[in-house]
């Protein structure tokens, strides 16, 4: 299982317990663009020792392929800007876990807010990644067809 998740809270309870622990994932990879080392260390400190943690500055490095892993990025635009690197990895799921910043955005779901550009980019990325895509906070919570919702909005 290899998941790429967009979540503007990045590494937090839902990811640490709800996804990594619940699904028995081995690795968590933080995808970022020039994030401060202090912040990365804080995130790393939130994980249990047995979880293999890696941070990748995707503006500078390629994305490492790991099995049984979840890749987390804080924004759709970050993944879109480096989509060539992202598409080098075969993911089983492209998951929208939370985009909660509301200013200038349209409500898609209770936990997903997007502007038009992000909606268009979602469709493009989905096509490029060619994998299952959903909006779902937790593996067992309601699973939304985000592509269908976005297409109805555009």
């Amino acid at each position: 299982m290899r998941i790429v998740r967009i979540d503007d809270r990045l590494i937090h309870g839902q990811v640490i317990v709800g996804w990594v622990k619940k699904l028995g994932l081995d690795s968590l990879i933080l995808l970022h663009n020039e994030m401060d080392n202090d912040i990365i260390e804080l995130y790393a400190g939130m994980l249990e020792e047995e979880i293999d943690f890696t941070s990748i500055d995707i503006s500078k490095s390629d994305i490492t392929c790991k099995a049984n892993a979840i890749y987390v990025a804080e924004s759709l635009n970050l993944l879109y800007d480096f989509k060539e690197k992202l598409t080098a990895i075969k993911f089983d799921l492209f998951n929208f876990g939370g985009l909660r910043t509301k200013v200038g955005k349209e409500k898609i779901l209770d936990f997903i807010y997007m502007d038009k550009t992000e909606m268009e980019r979602t469709l493009e990325l989905s096509s490029l990644l060619n994998t299952k895509i959903n909006a779902q906070e937790l593996p067992e919570s309601e699973n939304f067809n985000i592509l269908k919702i976005i297409k109805e909005r555009l």
Binding site: R9, L10, I11, H12, G13, Q14, I16, I39, L42, Y43, M46, L47
Partner: peptide
Amino acid sequence: DFYGSSISL
């Protein structure tokens, strides 16, 4: 509530 929650950072 716990270290690692979204309130932590």
